[in-house]
Design a protein around this nucleic acid. Structure first.
Ligand SMILES: NC(=O)c1ccc[n+]([C@@H]2O[C@H](COP(=O)([O-])OP(=O)(O)OC[C@H]3O[C@@H](n4cnc5c(N)ncnc54)[C@H](O)[C@@H]3O)[C@@H](O)[C@H]2O)c1
Ligand SMILES: NC(=O)c1ccc[n+]([C@@H]2O[C@H](COP(=O)([O-])OP(=O)(O)OC[C@H]3O[C@@H](n4cnc5c(N)ncnc54)[C@H](O)[C@@H]3O)[C@@H](O)[C@H]2O)c1
Lengths: 217, 217
DNA sequence: TTTGCACTGTTATTATTTTAACAGCATGTA
DNA sequence: TACATGCTGTTAAAATAATAACAGTGCAAA
């Protein structure tokens, strides 16, 4: 029962929102704001002020009455919760359109998550740099992952290569995988997996658009 | 109280899973399977067989005992629920790395969602085709959206252009927006909005990797 | 100094989503 | 025929998440 909360029990949804809050806060900080109200954060994220306050309560942060939350303090606190102290090195497998878009997007963000390597099989890409990240041959994956202490792998290879590459990552001792291909993978329990397929999101939008149209009739 | 269920009340999560089931089923169909068990679908999607059966119950589909679900029938039924009969035309705003990756990925999928136009401001891109999709000047956005009856817009422009482009889409009468930039937008109630930021997902992976590591200590 | 206001922080309630429990049934087997 | 097996479909319970309700508080205006 030390002073440190057991953040392990934070709701999954709260974890996601903390990440989002931080990004919104970083933007506000850039605009020379020092404090922010719960309803301001809420508006940016399309949620309710109560939900914001509740999330902040869960992480044990208190704002100042009539002044709101200290942006810098809150950013720092969220950092101590969701970031790894030493940072977590990350790699991208498959430097195609999507892989390069992600690298470009992620590099330069103020995040403890650093992309430290990229891999591909195409000889034209191997040896080149993309947004400052060296692209290596997939043959050296195991070696480089261990050398650079890489913990997270993002998969953006062609669909039919997915399973094989996921296995390679697992064998190299990776701890988390983010799979952007439409091919679902299986990983052992000790590896945390997230999969994202854009079609799901798009079809969801389509469904609710359809519903709204039918409603009008 | 007609025969048609009010699918409007389906849980959001079920909608997402239906889309995922269908994609898994389409793959199975390609492999010449005709039937599938709930536990097989479940394994592919990393969920429980009960959840699959419950979802299918909600949409009123029955399988055959000891034989499972008829894949083609189920695909068709899911289609009648989440697809718009006439299809929903879709456009991508910003034909950069990410926009092109999405176009390439989406074109050719068996989906009622067809990308029918792309827009950009860069003269080098305007007039060209990417994965078969014509890229037009953003100046013609309003005209083309109306002409082609486009209902859904995907935003992949640079962050600082996001708000403006979302507004343009709304003004042109779009019904759903999928925003892939990290800049949150606001839209009127009659427009359905989804936002996705990869950093959230990545930071979530990082958090649970961190938790797993701390657990071991 | 009193009152109203505009916030925060917490607990209570409700809604949503997942999981569990189990009844029912077609098929295979003895 | 009886009975075990391995599925489905449904209802009940539990877990998770969102919303509502409201007490508390410092400031500002009267
Ligand atoms: N989740 C989404 O929203 C989404 C969106 C678009 C694309 N995708 C998927 O992402 C993947 C990549 O899409 P893309 O448009 O970048 O494709 P792409 O063809 O442009 O890129 C694939 C890259 O992977 C490389 N590659 C091939 N085999 C490899 C291997 N075994 N190891 C390492 N690298 C290898 C190729 O040389 C190429 O550079 C595809 O599976 C696609 O379906 C997903
Ligand atoms: N959600 C995610 O996971 C994710 C991942 C990567 C990138 N992104 C974001 O997606 C966006 C695009 O990324 P990218 O790597 O493709 O960038 P990019 O620079 O390669 O592409 C942007 C494109 O938009 C065009 N453009 C600029 N202004 C425009 C306007 N007003 N109207 C129409 N087109 C315009 C540019 O000419 C360019 O072709 C960025 O905002 C980036 O931050 C999001």
């Amino acid at each position: 029962m030390g002073s440190k909360k057991n953040f392990k029990n934070l709701p999954h949804k709260t974890i996601e929102r903390l990440s989002q809050y931080r990004r919104a806060l970083l933007i506000c900080l850039d605009n020379n704001k020092t404090h922010i109200f719960s309803h301001e954060i809420a508006k940016i994220q399309h949620i309710t002020p109560v939900q914001v306050r509740r999330d902040l309560m869960l992480i044990g942060y208190s704002g100042t009455l009539r002044k709101g939350y200290n942006i810098q303090e809150l950013i720092d606190l969220i950092g101590t919760i969701i970031d790894n102290e030493e940072g977590l090195n990350t790699t991208i497998i498959g430097m195609g359109n999507l892989g390069r878009a992600l690298i470009k997007y992620l590099s330069g963000k103020r995040s403890k998550l650093e992309i430290v390597a990229g891999f591909d099989t195409n000889p034209d890409k191997i040896g080149n740099k993309f947004s400052g990240i060296q692209c290596s041959s997939i043959e050296h994956l195991d070696k480089i992952i261990k050398e650079k202490n890489i913990k997270i792998g993002i998969i953006t290879v062609p669909e039919d290569q997915t399973i094989e590459m996921a296995q390679k990552l697992v064998d190299a001792g990776i701890k988390g995988i983010l799979n952007y291909t439409p091919k679902p993978v299986e990983v052992p329990d000790h590896v945390y997996l997230e999969e994202y397929d854009m079609i799901t999101t798009l079809e969801k939008v389509a469904f609710y658009v359809k519903m709204a149209e039918e409603q009008k009739k």
